[in-house]
């Protein structure tokens, strides 16, 4: 497992890098509006009415943006959580922790692809 992780390290790092760079840029607006402004009533719920939301999301660009803002932060999250674990004396358990975290990000990413593809 350690050898496999070592060989995948460049791929993981690229996904992490995309997550922290592109993911941060995409997720901020989502958090602002979908996470905060609409639920608190700051912005009318009409903005996210089913028809409008579906129309935006099922557009080619909409699908790509959604895929990016779902999957990329997961890789940033998984990688940073792995480092957090190592920093707190987790070098020994890394052979277990890392595959679990990256596994979660992989499953989440596949689910994200399905979620945007079926719109």
């Amino acid at each position: 497992m350690k050898d496999l992780l070592l060989r995948l390290e460049p791929v993981i790092w690229v996904l992490f890098g995309a997550g922290i760079l592109v993911g941060t840029m995409l997720i901020t607006g989502w958090i602002l509006i979908v996470g905060l402004a609409v639920p608190t009533g700051l912005v009318s719920a009409d903005a996210l009415a089913f028809g409008r939301a579906y129309g935006l999301a099922s557009h080619f660009v909409g699908r790509l943006v959604l895929l990016g803002l779902i999957a990329l932060p997961m890789w940033k999250g998984a990688h940073h959580m792995r480092h957090l674990s190592i920093d707190h004396g987790g070098a020994e358990r890394d052979a277990v922790v890392a595959p679990i975290l990256y596994g979660i990000a992989t499953i989440g990413s596949i689910a994200a692809i399905v979620a945007v593809a079926r719109l």
Binding site: G19, G23, I27, W30, I31, V34, G35, A57, L66, L69, I70, A71, L72, P73, M74, K76, G77, A78, H79, H80, M81, H83, L84, D87, L101, I104, A105, G108, A111, A112, A115, V116, L119
Partner: peptide
Amino acid sequence: GATGIVYLLVGFVALRVVW
């Protein structure tokens, strides 16, 4: 590093919403 927890969760919340 700890923001990683938030990022992972935010991704899954967004996944649930889009799903």
